[in-house]
């Protein structure tokens, strides 16, 4: 697996993101019961786990959309790109205007801004949709636009919530390749949340697995399949036999 991308594992002493004992409840229901991890520059952390275990919640906490009930989040940058699970494009704006939003703070010249937008769209294969509105795009095209919007501002932290869900296999691979390329190019700290096996095995340098509000496994993707840990075993092999019941979450 690691042969796919040249991954610079030049670890800086200080992590870009440091999460310590993170806790979050929604009206009595404790979703996160003390989660800790670190992400360094130039590294991608995969977060996996059953549906509803709080993966999106972690990303929302990281970008300040939610406040934690306990624990600490330390980040060294506020320039965050987030690919929303739901795309979250602004419906009243065209694709071009959506991509211009993260560039507002950077005070670029009109020409440079346009160049960056075109480049971002070309990357996800949507150059000819630049003047379309989100409602005129398919779900997968919206997802790709959302991806382009998240990275067009050269963020220091990139958070991907299901970046490849709903895409065809070829486009998934293209997006994964691009995530790998970006990791080296931007030297950003990335977190990818995904259910898609190929996505976390290909793009993540390390993976944490969540279950019932706790980290139950942490390791490198190639270690997942052969691991003795019952949770990651069940998850990697997609079987019914194991500690996770399909109806327990």
């Amino acid at each position: 697996m690691s042969s796919i991308a040249p991954q610079p594992v030049t670890r800086h002493p200080e992590p870009i993101i440091k999460v310590v004992d993170l806790k979050k409840s929604f009206s009595e229901r404790e979703v996160l019961k003390g989660v800790s991890f670190e992400v360094f520059a130039g590294e991608t952390l995969g977060i996996i786990g059953p549906s509803g275990c709080g993966k999106s919640t972690i990303l929302r906490l990281l970008c300040g959309l939610l406040q934690p009930d306990g624990g600490q989040i330390i980040k060294t940058s506020d320039n965050i790109g987030l690919v929303f699970q739901s795309s979250a494009l602004l419906n009243s704006l065209t694709v071009r205007q959506n991509l211009a939003l993260p560039l507002r703070l950077q005070h670029l010249s009109r020409k440079e801004q346009e160049r960056r937008i075109q480049e971002g769209l070309k990357l996800v294969g949507l150059a000819e949709y630049i003047d379309s509105y989100p409602s005129q795009l398919s779900g997968g095209q919206q997802k790709r636009t959302s991806f382009a919007r998240a990275i067009v501002g050269n963020p220091k932290i990139i958070l991907y919530d299901e970046p490849t869900t709903g895409l065809d296999p070829v486009m998934s691979t293209i997006i994964e390749d691009y995530m790998i390329q970006l990791e080296a190019q931007l030297h950003a700290a990335s977190i990818v949340v995904t259910h898609q096996y190929s996505t976390w095995t290909r793009t993540a340098d390390r993976v944490v697995m969540l279950h019932a509000g706790k980290v139950v496994w942490e390791g490198k993707p190639p270690e997942a399949e052969g691991s003795n840990n019952p949770y990651i075993r069940q998850f990697a092999h997609a079987t019914r036999e194991g500690p996770m019941l399909s109806n327990s979450v």
Binding site: C63, G64, F84, A88, L89, L90, N91, L105, G153
Partner: peptide, 20 residues
């Protein structure tokens, strides 16, 4: 109606993440 829809579909969250 417009702003509520934007809120529900996370468009307002997206603005905040982009520091707008």
């Amino acid at each position: 109606a417009e702003l509520t829809t934007m809120n529900i579909t996370e468009q307002i969250d997206a603005l905040e993440v982009m520091r707008i």
